[in-house]
Design a protein around this nucleic acid. Structure first.
Lengths: 223, 223
DNA sequence: AACTCTCTTCAAATTTTATTCATATTTTGT
DNA sequence: ACAAAATATGAATAAAATTTGAAGAGAGTT
């Protein structure tokens, strides 16, 4: 079952949404202001966020940017009718959908379900260039031929392929790899992973087909 | 693959049935008297019993009652034409069907198949490679030969065979095994189960036919 | 009580992967 | 072009995960 965070300062609207999503079987986290929202986002890691644009302490757009910066968690924006221009802003900063107030709660639930279906395509096969990535099986095929990757290599590829074009710092890559707060690993370790992945994929650092080096920043999967 | 016990003192009739059921793909156990029948029933646990009414040592009705008392194994009664009243008795004591002598062997086979379909309805046999998995009976056959597995081993195999290719983490396997919130089991326990399963299946961790190890992730049933 | 069967733990051997290291190469800023 | 910083990479080493035999613990039977 999916976890949803509702960020809305109007108690009535928040409770209304809470009721509907509760009935729809969601686990719900509530936040009445932007600061709380970001804190809860870190600790609770919801699957999707419903976000009001007009928020106390920290405004909705900033919250959205912050969320999208850390993880690609889908966002449904709530905007007042008058804020027509905000729609555009909302979508620009990466909201996945938006609803204008006043809205029908049922419609919001439906939209959320649609976004979730899009964002979490129940363990689908991911296709990227000539790669086929099977998360359930932890297997990757290149032009139909299986290439063996270790679990950690797989995690790196998966994360990067999921967000092509995004630069992954070495630190971020480490976060993807290590579930526990283990000892910190030396920086060059990531380089070696990238090297090995490139080798298996037949990729070349100069003129790469998959992984580009971003000097001073990290690595990026070429779109 | 079903196991059938034929209880009949007339050697000719018994051999005739044996021949037909053998050709129909059954595993056959024979008994010429009621005492032997009950002993074999205990040790062999057939899926169905063909039972003659007139038997030496212990008569058919007593055998039938005894069988039905222990387990609800279906029975097909064989009755002589003159024993019309026995038909009723037979059905009263719980026979699932009856055939009067002289009978056509083909008809007997058909009736047995029908009874089996009735008696083991929702048992869908899962076939995987050279394995036949019978969930209801908690039995697994490899090339037609039964391999004894313990309840937990069975659960693991069942879960994995149902989703071939999917990697099962040790934690996930534990979830399959433990219904209640029992004590948490140490990680290596799963490894030992896998080892024992492999041994029984004649599987080799390097170059496996069934269960692949996925370093750092878990185990996977080879497609 | 002795036995059997299953589940679980343990420890040693083995295998595979992760990490570090050293050196070469490339990129960037001046 | 030069120095400094960052990246690339083969090889060595360390660490981690898996395999396995053996044996202890518990439950149920005879």
């Amino acid at each position: 079952m999916k976890k949803i965070m509702i960020v809305e300062d109007d108690d009535n609207i928040r409770e209304l949404l809470e009721m509907y999503f509760s009935k729809a079987g969601f686990e719900i986290i509530q936040a009445a202001d932007g600061k709380t929202a970001l804190d809860l986002f870190e600790s609770e890691k919801p699957h999707i966020v419903i976000l009001d644009l007009m928020l106390p302490v920290i405004d909705g757009i900033t919250v959205a940017k912050e969320i999208k910066k850390n993880a690609n968690i889908p966002i449904l924006m709530l905007t007042a009718k008058a804020e027509e221009s905000d729609r555009i802003k909302g979508l620009e900063i990466g909201a996945d959908d938006y609803v204008t107030k006043p809205f029908s709660p049922k419609e919001v639930v439906l939209r959320v379900k649609n976004i979730l279906k899009r964002s979490y395509p129940d363990e689908q096969i991911i296709k990227f260039k000539d790669l086929e990535i099977h998360p359930k099986e932890i297997k990757i095929y290149q032009n139909g031929k299986e290439i063996p990757f270790t679990a950690k290599e797989f995690k790196i590829i998966f994360a990067m392929v999921t967000k092509p074009g995004t630069v992954f710092s070495r630190e971020k890559i480490m976060d993807e790899i290590y579930t526990e707060y283990d000892d910190v690993v030396f920086d060059r370790t990531i380089d070696v992973y990238i090297k090995n992945i490139r080798k298996k994929l037949g990729d070349n650092p100069k003129n790469p087909r998959y992984i580009e080096s971003v000097y001073g920043a990290g690595y990026r999967m070429r779109k």
